[in-house]
């Protein structure tokens, strides 16, 4: 009998339902999009109206013109070298900074300020750093290396410190109990635990930096980006297509190789 009786009001309150709050969230998202329409200068009609022009523009890209392929490959190599050095310097700085930013390693008056500085490094895009360094050290790849270095340090140090905060404290205590000092606790107890994650994050950042390095050149910080910027500005669309293809292939290859490396290391 009890099974057929109507549910008391208190029980129905616990049932899942399309609540007002769900509707409210959807409403808010749609409202935000509507408010941003004008600011973002949304002109979908233009896409349709100018579709003929666009098709002609797109057709200009084909066939890609590889006449200058030696220059493109040389600059692509420079781009990889920028990414490599930017990442390497960032890793070097992120090891101590990541440890200093970990709340299970340092007191708050150390890890809080370090984190804020890393936040600032991360908040500013590498393109902005690239422009600043072009002014400081002149046009060329070195400005790109410095830009990637600073921005990547902000990202990697944060990721490194999160890995450190997630370690198992027991092995570290095992090292401490032998009379070891703090640095030895870190080298024996902490680093071995975070190594797989650190390596994996580093490879991810290297992949991202290859992509970033191919654009920092557009503000004069060396590499394939410089070439790209010049041919786009000169309306050399077939050459642009060639450079874009080279970038796509290189980035894909790097992603693939680094993904393989990551899996074997973990």
């Amino acid at each position: 009998m009890a099974a057929t009786a109507p549910l008391p009001l208190a029980a129905t309150a616990n049932l899942p339902k399309t609540s007002w709050s769900t509707l409210l969230v959807w409403g808010a998202v749609l409202g935000l999009l509507a408010l941003s329409w004008q600011g973002a200068d949304m002109r979908p009609a233009d896409l349709v109206r100018d579709s003929g022009n666009m098709a002609k523009y797109a057709a200009d890209f084909f066939p890609p013109n590889f006449a200058n392929w030696q220059l493109y490959l040389k600059e692509m190599l420079v781009t990889l070298q920028i990414a490599l050095w930017g990442t390497a310097l960032a890793v070097l700085c992120s090891i101590p900074l990541g440890l200093l930013a970990a709340s299970n390693i340092t007191p708050w008056w150390i890890h809080q300020p370090v984190r804020r500085v890393m936040d600032a490094f991360r908040a500013i895009n590498e393109m902005v750093f690239a422009m600043l360094f072009v002014v400081a050290v002149g046009l060329g790849p070195f400005a790109g290396v410095l830009a990637l270095w600073i921005h990547t340090t902000g990202t990697l140090a944060k990721l490194f410190s999160e890995a450190v905060e997630a370690i198992d404290p027991q092995p570290v205590e095992g090292i401490r109990a032998t009379g070891a000092q703090k640095l030895e606790e870190i080298v024996y107890g902490v680093i071995p635990q975070v190594m797989p994650l650190w390596v994996s994050y580093t490879l991810y950042r290297f992949e991202a930096n290859v992509r970033s390095a191919s654009v920092v050149g557009m503000v004069g910080a060396g590499g394939i980006g410089v070439v790209l910027w010049e041919i786009i500005r000169g309306f050399y669309y077939a050459e642009t297509a060639a450079v874009l293809l080279i970038i796509i292939v290189t980035v894909t290859l790097i992603d693939f190789a680094s993904g393989r490396l990551r899996r074997t290391l973990i």
């Binding site: 092995p171 095992g174 109990a177 024996y188 635990q193 797989p196």
Partner: peptide, 18 residues
Amino acid sequence: VRESIGFVFQQFNLVGRL
């Protein structure tokens, strides 16, 4: 002082990856 004290833990507390 700790140098002369050996500690053996229930969960061993070795560093697994070493």
